[in-house]
Structure formats: structure tokens, C-alpha cells
Computed example of a mutant assay.
Amino acid sequence: MPTRALVFDFDGTLADTESAVLQAWQEVFRAHGTELPLEAWYAVIGTQHTTPAMFALLAERAPGVDPDALRPVTKARVHELLETLGPRDGVESYLETARTQGIKLAVASSSSGAWVNPHLERLGIAGYFDAVLTGDLHRAKPDPDLYLAALDALRTPANETLAFEDTPHGVTAAKAAGLTCVAVPNAITERLDFRQADVVLPSFTAKPLEALLSR
């Protein structure tokens, strides 16, 4: 069966934004005299629950914290850390190969469109995608809704579509929608369990898209 479409998660997959977000939260926790346990981060990574979960945990560890006061500070620090961030190594090669071969492309992200779309533009890769599906309009992962919406937008069947993810929550969503899923963990997620994925690559540079499609 030929591959007619590729659907990419955004955070941590197309660009390693998760490292910047984690660093910003770690700095917030340390500024309040405590540490952010990585287990708590891993429990929510790839979902829509990161920010509320982090504020709830911080409130437990540092009573009296004002989330409304910290929110703009944390957001500004994240954007500062992301200013020089580019796509993950090998991503642009995958996108260019897909475009050359006439393969449709989409993004399926639990993050909001207000987060994803400006970053796609800043990274210089927005023009590759036929559709961008985001968590402000669809149920977040691990629910399959984002992937089902991507299939509908691209008008391709699940068995002719590959998903690319960097978290187990994302893999769960893709598999629940019936897609073959390639996990490409980043430095933050590489220690997590990706047994549910059909293929696990250490990076996009580890195998060219052409070789992946010929499997």
C-alpha cells in the first residue's frame, strides 16, 4: 500500500520546543525553592494538561504561588529560549522529499493554533503543510481526534498515512486512529516507552524518508 500522507506532531517532533518549555518550568520551580520531578513532566507531556498540571504541582510545593502573576513570566522565558531554535535535524529533508513525491502533509498538535502556526512560520516550514490541526479545535492526545481530523482534512485513509510522534501519548493517539506510527524521540522523551510505535528512530537523520517508505 503506497503512503499518500504524512502527519507530524509539532512540539518535540518537528522542533524540540519541549526542551525549552521544560527548562522554563524547571527555572520557575527552582526560583520557588523546589525541583520539578521529571516523572510529573512525563505524565503530561504531549497533552493539553502541561500548564495546569505544573501550576497545581508548584502550588503543592510552594504554597502561596500566584499562577496569574507567573504565567506571563514563564511564557516570556519560553519564547526567549525558542528564539534561536530551528527544526529538528533532518525534518526539512523529510518535508522536501514528501513534497517532491506528491505526498500530502499535515500537523496534528495538542497545542493551540496560536502557538503552533506562528512557530511553523518562524521555522520556515509552514508552506509545506496542507493542513494544521490543533488542540484548541479538537480533543487533545491521547484521544485520536486530532489524527482523525487530519485524515479527513487530507482525504487520505489511515492505512496510507504515516504519523510521526515524540511521546507515548502521541503514539497512542495515532495508533487509535489506525495510522502506522514512527516514533522519533527527542532528548527529553528518549527514555520513555515506545513499544506501541511501529518504528522507532533515534533521529530524522538516522533513516531517509525514502528508506522508511520502502519498508
Score class of each variant (00 low, 15 high):
Met1Trp: 10
Pro2Val: 08
Arg4Leu: 15
Ala5Cys: 09
Ala5Asn: 04
Val7Ile: 15
Asp9Pro: 07
Phe10Gly: 03
Gly12His: 03
Leu14Cys: 07
Val21Leu: 10
Val21His: 13
Leu22Ser: 01
Ala24Lys: 08
Ala24Gln: 08
Phe29Arg: 05
Phe29Asp: 01
Arg30Pro: 03
Val44Pro: 05
Ile45Val: 15
Thr47Phe: 02
Thr50Gln: 14
Thr50Leu: 15
Thr51Cys: 00
Thr51Asp: 12
Pro52Asn: 04
Phe55Thr: 00
Ala56Asn: 04
Glu60Thr: 10
Gly64Tyr: 01
Asp66Thr: 02
Asp68Trp: 09
Ala69Leu: 12
Arg71Phe: 13
Val73Met: 11
Val73Gln: 14
Thr84Ile: 00
Pro87Lys: 00
Asp89Tyr: 02
Glu92Gly: 00
Tyr94Thr: 03
Leu95Pro: 03
Leu95His: 02
Ala98Tyr: 09
Leu105Ser: 04
Leu105His: 06
Ala108Ser: 11
Ser109Gln: 06
Ser110Leu: 10
Ala114Trp: 01
Arg122Glu: 08
Leu123Gln: 05
Gly124Leu: 04
Gly127Met: 00
Tyr128Ile: 03
Phe129Gln: 05
Ala131His: 01
Leu137Asp: 12
Leu137Ala: 14
Arg139Phe: 01
Ala140Ile: 02
Pro142Trp: 10
Asp143Glu: 12
Asp143Thr: 02
Pro144Met: 11
Ala149Phe: 04
Ala149Gly: 05
Ala150Lys: 09
Ala153Pro: 04
Ala153Val: 04
Leu154Ser: 11
Arg155Met: 13
Thr156Gln: 13
Pro157Ala: 10
Glu160Ile: 04
Thr161Leu: 13
Ala163Pro: 00
Glu165Tyr: 08
Glu165Ser: 09
Gly170His: 08
Thr172Leu: 13
Ala173Phe: 06
Gly178Asn: 12
Leu179Val: 12
Thr180Trp: 14
Ala183Thr: 11
Asn186Ser: 09
Asn186Phe: 05
Ile188Pro: 05
Thr189Ser: 15
Asp193Cys: 06
Phe194Trp: 11
Val199Cys: 11
Leu201His: 09
Pro202Asp: 14
Pro202Val: 07
Ser203Phe: 04
Thr205Leu: 12
Ala206Val: 10
Ala206Phe: 03
Leu212Tyr: 05
Leu213Trp: 02
